[in-house]
Design a protein around this nucleic acid. Structure first.
Length: 159
DNA sequence: GCCAACGTTGGC
DNA sequence: GCCAACGTTGGC
């Protein structure tokens, strides 16, 4: 099992969109960056994906979802009506891929970027690097542990 | 294959 | 809204 983190602007797709229909399978499409695409192609069914909210009021990791379908051609690249349309993509040779995701859990509180920056496990992670623009990044098991611990801390505080 | 110009991302 | 950092494009 591998772990990943994917960025999204919550206006477009947030952890709440997953949470409101937990059984729903949501297609993660529209990724138009080669490095991010390459990571998506490495994803396997069952992998866990941390959902990161960017460019919003509460920047940080908001919850967890699971890969339920590995990479397949992103249909939006062929759709001329889509903002993600790519005229250079041919159906027999697609450039971009999508994966399908399903809800696991929503964190009680978003783990703020500022908190992630203080985690030793994330010292050299691209997520906390200045100017980082990668929307899909791998997460180590140590980093996963650090995020889950932080997420559960809030839960225990509530009790 | 280089590199300047441009568009986009994303934190603040 | 600002601006730094980055990826992509296109002329040469």
């Amino acid at each position: 099992m591998q772990y990943w983190l994917m960025k999204t602007e919550p206006d477009e797709c947030s952890i709440d969109d997953f949470a409101k229909t937990p059984a729903a399978v949501i297609r993660w499409d529209g990724v138009r960056n080669y490095q991010a695409r390459n990571f998506m192609q490495e994803m396997h069914i069952g992998d866990e994906v941390f959902i990161y909210h960017s460019s919003c009021a509460k920047i940080g990791v908001a919850g967890l979802v699971r890969v339920v379908r590995a990479a397949y051609p992103d249909p939006t690249q062929f759709d001329s009506a889509s903002t993600y349309f790519d005229s250079k993509s041919q159906p027999d040779k697609p450039r971009w891929v999508a994966v399908d995701l399903q809800y696991i859990r929503r964190f009680t509180e978003v783990i703020p970027l500022a908190a992630i920056k203080t985690m030793p496990a994330f010292t050299d992670h691209p997520l906390v690097a200045k100017g980082n623009r990668l929307s899909v990044v791998p997460i180590s098991s140590e980093q996963r542990e650090a995020l889950n611990q932080r997420a559960n801390r809030h839960k225990e505080d509530d009790v």
